[in-house]
Design a protein around this nucleic acid. Structure first.
Length: 235
DNA sequence: CCCTGATTCGC
DNA sequence: GCGAATCAGG
């Protein structure tokens, strides 16, 4: 496998989202964890805290390197601040593995009943800022139930086909289609959001807002929201 | 042991 | 430029 523009872009995105190198590696496929790390460095992506580099050691304290003597007088290289420019990419993969998800707490949400979904009926007065991708940032307290858990909805046996006729199915998904699941897989009317995605992300702006939250200072950060699947079924 | 990211260096 | 091998901390 080679580093195509697309793959590089995916790497950037996932790296910035805080996925581990291992995760990124097998999401991309065909590359090792080391390859990912190596590439990330070559790209100038500065990683978040590495477990081994917690404290800064200005001088080479340990010289256990039996590899080769490198008497090269290193000149202090200025840290280039990385202006994170989200490049519009095309995430080809499905979001199943490491994305958003599951209803930790069942919250009655008037999800898609038929036809149009208006997941944000009430105006949100507490918009914080706009994230790098263009989606709305949320504070930790602003995080809502990640997904409308299967709402009190009854399946209509009579006209199943017509019911999902205009909904986005798995086969309809492209890189530009929001892959946020509506309902639960296996259900007759399970479908995907289908909105146009936020460039560089697998979801539309609205669902990016749900899936990702602002990177907060370490320590004050919360664990990421649960994934779309895996939560308790709500029936 | 497992995991993590950083670094080196032969290719 | 790439990434396996290696290092080193959790």
């Amino acid at each position: 496998m080679s580093w195509t523009d697309e793959r590089i872009d995916q790497l950037k995105g996932m790296w910035e989202r805080g996925l581990t190198a291992s995760q990124i590696a097998d999401e991309l496929g065909g590359v090792s964890r080391n390859a990912v790390i190596g590439k990330a460095h070559r790209l100038g992506l500065q990683s978040r805290p590495s477990p081994v580099k917690a404290n800064e050691t200005p001088k080479k304290a340990a010289a256990p390197a039996p590899r080769k003597p490198a008497p090269t007088p290193e000149v202090e290289a200025p840290r280039a601040a990385a202006p994170v420019a989200p490049a519009p990419a095309a995430p080809v993969r499905a979001p199943a593995a490491a994305a958003p998800a599951a209803p930790a707490a069942p919250a009655p949400a008037p999800a898609a009943a038929a036809g149009d979904d208006a997941p944000t009926p009430a105006p949100q007065p507490r918009i914080i800022s706009v994230g790098p991708g263009g989606f709305l940032r949320q504070g930790p307290g602003d995080q809502q139930a990640p997904i409308p858990p299967a709402p009190p909805r009854r399946l209509v046996p009579a006209k199943p086909s017509a019911e999902i006729a205009d909904k986005t199915s798995l086969l309809d998904l492209t890189e530009r289609i929001c892959k946020w699941p509506m309902g639960h897989p296996g259900e007759a009317d399970f479908h995907f959001c289908g909105e146009t995605v936020n460039p560089g992300f697998p979801y539309c702006v609205e669902h990016c807002g749900r899936a990702y939250q602002a990177q907060l200072p370490r320590g004050t950060r919360r664990p990421p929201p649960p994934l779309p699947f895996g939560g308790p079924r709500v029936r």
